[in-house]
Design a protein around this nucleic acid. Structure first.
Length: 293
DNA sequence: TCCGTAAGGTATCAG
DNA sequence: CTGATACCTTACGGA
């Protein structure tokens, strides 16, 4: 058992762990009380995930981020939760905009995540026309059924399945888990990765829009899902996924950004949101619109 | 109790 | 290249 702490007061812009992990960016973390999306956890509740066979759990209390793991996980925790991001500077550099200001003010401390690419790819293929709690349920079911069990501190945790394990699943099995029409997409994409035809991480080497096109070769991946994978797992902070919430925001707040096609509209909104860190702005606006009232 | 609708869209097929 | 349509499943609100 390894453990450590990160002083959140010393972190530029702080960290709101709850909003970071329950804002619909990541479906690869779970809560020990099993109750995601139903309100903030008790201060002593842990969030956990499994990365490369190592269990990591974190909780935030008294201004400190505590972590425990089967490995020395300080660098891993900092990477997954992007603790090195200068959040204050990112917020300060954001363009002056009423909706954006409101979103940033309401959810201060929420950070982007940096999740493993394959799990993110499959998670967002599952996300099509789905509510966040159900997406999380699907991903948890995949882990429970096909993920490698890992023992840690007297309990058993499940890693997200490997491409090989998911490729060996059948469409019928995944439909049994409630994936619906996404089931064949998941199997076929897992096959592509397992066969070595392509891996989402390869998109890292490309320019942003080329990277988005590259990811669209996977079955079940269109513009929106590709942007989510780029933003939440491949370091493309300029990616602005256009989902139903953002489309509503465009209608009501940025009608001049509607350029017809996804690519052109996305480009226009990216400019409006300040370019380099437009994905941060998107994530705040998405979460703000989704959680108000 | 029963339906219509929408949920972080994508694949497929016309024109 | 753009637009229309089907698609699994579930949880709501209104009839």
């Amino acid at each position: 058992m390894h453990s450590g702490e990160v002083d959140l007061e010393a972190l530029s812009g702080g960290l709101d762990l709850y909003r970071t992990l329950e804002s619909g960016q990541t479906y690869l973390w779970r809560r020990t009380d099993g109750a995601m999306y139903g309100g903030a956890p008790a201060p002593d509740e842990w969030y956990y995930t499994v990365v490369d066979g190592a269990v990591v759990r974190v909780r935030s209390r008294n201004g400190v981020l505590e972590w425990e793991s089967s490995i020395e996980a300080d660098p891993l925790v900092r990477r997954l939760l992007r603790l090195e991001d200068d959040l204050e500077a990112i917020v300060a550099a954001a363009p002056d905009d009423p909706l954006l200001d409101e979103a940033y003010a309401a959810h201060r401390g929420m950070r982007l995540v940096d999740d493993p690419p394959f799990g993110t790819l499959i998670s967002f293929i599952c996300s099509a026309q789905m509510r966040v709690d159900r997406i999380h349920g699907m991903v948890s079911a995949l882990a429970r059924q096909y993920g490698e069990p890992v023992a840690f501190d007297g309990a058993t945790y499940h890693a997200f399945p490997t491409p090989e394990r998911l490729a060996a699943a059948t469409e019928g099995e995944l439909r049994e888990l409630g994936l619906g029409y996404r089931a064949p997409y998941v199997v076929r994409t897992a096959e592509m990765v397992a066969d070595g035809e392509a891996h989402p991480a390869e998109a890292r080497e490309l320019e942003y829009e080329d990277a988005r096109e590259f990811l669209k070769r996977f079955v079940g991946v269109g513009d929106k899902v590709a942007d989510c994978v780029l933003l939440f797992s491949l370091g493309f902070d300029q990616a602005v996924p256009l989902d139903t919430w953002l489309k509503t925001a465009i209608e009501e707040h940025y009608p001049d950004c509607d350029r017809g096609s996804y690519a052109a509209t996305s480009r226009a909104l990216r400019e409006r949101f300040g370019g380099e860190y437009a994905g941060y702005a998107q994530t705040y606006v998405f979460h703000h619109l989704r959680t108000r009232d």
